[in-house]
Amino acid sequence: MSKARKYFVIARIHVQNAFAYRANVISGLLYYTLFIFVFFSLWQAIYQEGSVNGYTHGQVVWYLIATELVVFGCRTPIVSKINEDVKTGAMAYLLNRPVHYIAYQAAAAVGQILANLCFFGVLAVALGFLFVGPIPNFRWAGIPCMLLSGLLGVALQFSSMVAIGLTAFRLEDNSAVYLIFQKLVFMLDVFLPVEFLPVWLQGIAKALPFSYVAWGPAKLFVDFTWSLFFRIVPMQLLWFSVMTGFALLMYRSGMRNLQMNGG
């Protein structure tokens, strides 16, 4: 109970903190709106009528709104924070507290992500209705499954960012790793639905973790089917476990080195 309380308080204070920086919130909302508007216009020019690769114009705009919601929702400085803690040795000093470093970061991120999802969620729904109206043939019964997949997408993004941040124990400069991860998520996931990629690349994309951050939940959101759900969620669970395992492995070996050799 006490353990749960400590992480709950950490998350609560980070939510409060997220609300305190108004300029950050407003600029983020403006950037999100601009981004959606640009791509809405682009897709409008591409779509004359009917559908492309199984997506109608309305679906593809809602897809983009959902993927960007995951990306904007996960906007936390976690990679740079972990990087800084490893490089400056601050991580060693956190050992002096009865709190697990990764669990602390997770609680702090949950707070920020919840706040982000509240801000961007309301805006996302408003923009979707404003630009294209309701999602065609939306399956209301699938909402719990969509939420589960969205949660797993956020969790996968978080565990990947922690794992990337912790590579600072081994790599002098890990910014390239983060950049590649971001670009792959954008190209195989956020910007275009996987179905828009060449067929040979679709198989590869569906086997890699990047697509399961946002493509999975967004695809379920705009075109829910049970068979899709049972294909996407196990892959999300698999990649979340792999990334979490990798992050814990990096953390343990890094901490062992730090405690034996001072970092």
């Binding site: 400590k6 950490i10 204070i13």
Partner: peptide, 9 residues
Amino acid sequence: FAMLGAIYG
């Protein structure tokens, strides 16, 4: 202080 309070129970 609130966070430390929670961390230290």
